[in-house]
Each structure stands twice: as C-alpha cells, then as structure tokens.
Design a protein around this nucleic acid. Structure first.
Lengths: 143, 143
DNA sequence: AGAAAAATTTAGAACGATTCTAATTATTTC
DNA sequence: GAAATAATTAGAATCGTTCTAAATTTTTCT
C-alpha cells in the first residue's frame, strides 16, 4: 500500500518536526491505519503490515504506532481494558462501541455540544482532551 | 471498618438477588470502596483491606470487586491502559483525570446534557452507558 | 447436631498486552 | 567513505489480570 502524496508529506513534515526520520516501516504502518478505518488493534495492524512487508516485527509496529501518536498523525482509542486501537481521525469525535458485534463507529460531536461538556466542569479544571465512549448495540449489526 | 446498616442491607440484598452469599471479605472490600472515594486501584484496595484483614488475598480482592460490580454496587473506571479503578458513585457522572497529580474527580452531568449526548447518536444505535473522561490538569493540584 | 453439597477463599501458576534490552541494520553527517 | 546517530529487530521482562485446584466456609438436608 502506497501512501497518497498528501499523506506522505504530512508524515514527513510531522516526523521532521519532531526530529525523527521517515522510514519505510513508519510509512507502511501509517498507510495501514489510514487504509481501513476500522480502529484496528496492534495485532491486526501487525497482521496487515506483514502481508506487504513480511519482515516487519511486532516491536517495530509498536514503535511506529507510538511515534505516529506522538507526532499527532493518529490517535489511540481505548475501551475498558481491551487492546489499544488506532484511529486516523484527528477531529474531535466520540466512539460508539457495539458490545455484540465489536463494531466501532466514529460519532461526530458538534462544537456546541463539546462546549457544553466543557462548561459542565467546575472552576479550577483545565481540560486538554475529552474521551467519550458510547457503549451499546447497533441495530444493524450482524448479530 | 464496619459497614453502615443501610449499606450492609444494600449489599446483602444485592448479593442475594444474584444468588450470592454475603461474606466477611465482600463486606470488607465494599466498605473500603465506600470509605475513601478516591477511585482506588486493586492494589490500593488490597493494601487498605489488609490493614484490618491481614489474611485476605489479592485473588479474593479481585473476586470481591468483580462480584460487587456484577451486583451493581460499585462501578469500574478505566483511564487509558492504567490499572482499573473502583467507584461507589452509581449515578451518571463523568471523571476528570489530572495528568499531573493523578487526582480523579467525579463530574456531575445534568440530565439535559446526557440527553444531548444521546441525541448526538445517529439512528440505529442503542446506548447502554456513556463513559466520559476529561483529561487535563486541576489548577489546585499539589504540583 | 452432623453429613453432604455448594459456594467462597486462597496461593500460585498462567496469560495477554505492552515495554524493555541489547545487538544489528540503516541513514545521516562530516 | 568513515563515524555518528537513529531505527529495527527478536526475545526477555514486566504488569495487571485471570485461571486452577486445593482448602475452607457456609448452607442444606436429614
């Protein structure tokens, strides 16, 4: 999987900005997270990565994902104690997590709603990021 | 630590309702989660439990907490991949998590705000529970 | 009350996700 | 093109949690 030029340059700039090198592995892992936006786990990303790059190691997948998160190119998503998942959608959004099918869907949040959430905070709290997970069942899920 | 009669009867009823026995260990672990509402981890609960009941095992603390969660007497709270924490506040609320001091504060959410969150969901999603974590820094924190 | 059945506790082994370590390989700098 | 720097790799180590099997406790049934 080849990275579209716009993403390639985003990657290169973001890495350079952090004093990091652009490598084949980082590019490949980034492309996988961008390709299928189903919030894959490390194991899933590792499996997908190996189909095109069979020699990549699990440690490298962990390293690349960490680097991409630090460079603010992708985000981590956690549900309870399940394995961490990765998401290339950087705009503020929540996640719906279907307990039956395991499906994960991005939920857009209006600026207004986000602001209301922020005003629910008492004085003296400075918020950097709000994590919101809706847990339930999607009516259309295969189950 | 002795459980106040109202909590003792809540515990007994909830356990009985689930076909489970009320034991010294379950009562003691419940009392610890109620006593200091600082969202302790299993290790912290284990340490506190042993001061009054030195023979209790870590496995039992895990077991009791699981039982109490299933009986809907307490709730689990997770932040990213940190150890699970426990909270006796059963009403709908969010958590503020200070990245500097580690402090965790319950944030009340108005019914109106919760409803607005629910209406942010598209058709076809049935939500059971919404997890909300505010990450940031509390201005008053020791750091 | 006492025996049998059922549930709970316990210690330690096992597990799964993640991080660390140290050696190798690749890239950049001079 | 050599030296310095950074990234990759395989496997060991770690951490929180769950599992296992034996011992203990509680309940049920005469």
């Amino acid at each position: 999987m080849k990275l579209a030029p716009e993403y390639k340059s985003r990657l290169d700039h973001a890495l350079e900005h952090n004093g990091l090198r652009s490598t084949k592995q980082r590019e490949h892992v980034f492309s996988i997270v961008l390709e299928k936006r189903d919030h894959p786990t490390v194991d899933e990303i590792y499996a997908r990565a190996r189909t095109k790059m069979p020699t990549i190691s699990l440690a490298t997948v962990y390293n690349c994902l960490e680097t991409l998160v630090e460079s603010e190119l992708i985000r981590q998503v956690n549900f309870e104690r399940e394995p961490t998942r990765y998401c290339p959608n950087l705009i503020q959004h929540a996640h719906f997590h279907c307990k039956e099918s395991g499906a994960i869907v991005d939920i857009e949040l209006s600026d207004e709603l986000v602001n209301q959430l922020k005003t629910a905070l008492p004085e003296g709290f400075t918020v950097q990021h709000i994590d919101i997970a809706y847990n339930g069942k999607c009516d259309t899920c295969p189950h």
